[in-house]
Simulated scan of single mutants.
Amino acid sequence: MAEVCRRLGARRGKPLKLSPYPLDVPGPFGLWIATPVVDFILYQQETTNAHQQHIIAHELGHIISGHSSDDGDEAGWYESFPDIPPDHVRRALRRTHYETDQEREAETVATLLLERAAVLEQVALPSQTPRARRAQQALGEQQDWL
């Protein structure tokens, strides 16, 4: 997901900064904070690596889908993140349920991103047998959509 963030940031002309953070439990596992010059994806540092990758992919789903904040999403988060000036925050998403179309869409994009990452990891593995190498040559290179 770090590579997806790098590529998406380059494509959008604004970097995406990933930050593990001890988010309160219960509460959201991830948070996207958009500013004019950088976007932040904060994710729960107190969970497994696989869960962290899913959280990041979900927040990327919001960005890729062009989701906006709901009323009140920005309220109350400024005290928790003193490094981000409140007047720079343009958007913040921090939901804890999947009852909205935006949340379901972000979850679908996250699933697609993680599936694609898994495929690319398998393709990147070196072929050990002549038969496997022939199969890779016949199938050609994977074309990534990001």
Rank of each mutant, 00 (worst) to 15 (best):
R6N: 08
L8Y: 14
L8K: 06
L8N: 03
G9P: 00
R12F: 15
P15M: 05
L16W: 04
S19F: 06
S19W: 11
P20R: 06
P22T: 07
P22W: 03
P22Q: 06
D24C: 07
P28G: 10
F29L: 13
L31G: 00
W32F: 12
T35G: 10
T35K: 03
V37A: 13
I41N: 01
L42T: 00
L42K: 00
Q45L: 07
T48M: 08
T48H: 11
N49S: 11
N49C: 12
Q52F: 06
Q52K: 11
H54D: 08
I56Y: 09
L60Y: 07
H62C: 08
S65V: 07
S65T: 05
G66N: 03
S69N: 04
D73F: 03
W77P: 00
Y78H: 13
E79V: 08
E79C: 11
E79R: 07
V89G: 04
A92I: 02
L93K: 15
R95P: 05
Y98Q: 12
E99C: 09
T100Y: 04
E103I: 06
R104I: 04
R104V: 09
E105V: 12
E107I: 14
E107S: 09
A110C: 04
A110P: 01
L113R: 00
L114D: 06
E115R: 15
R116S: 07
A118Q: 09
V119R: 15
V119C: 09
L120N: 06
E121H: 13
Q122V: 15
V123P: 01
V123M: 02
V123L: 03
P130D: 00
P130Q: 05
R131M: 13
A132N: 07
A132V: 09
A132K: 12
R134G: 00
A138G: 03
G140R: 13
Q143I: 15
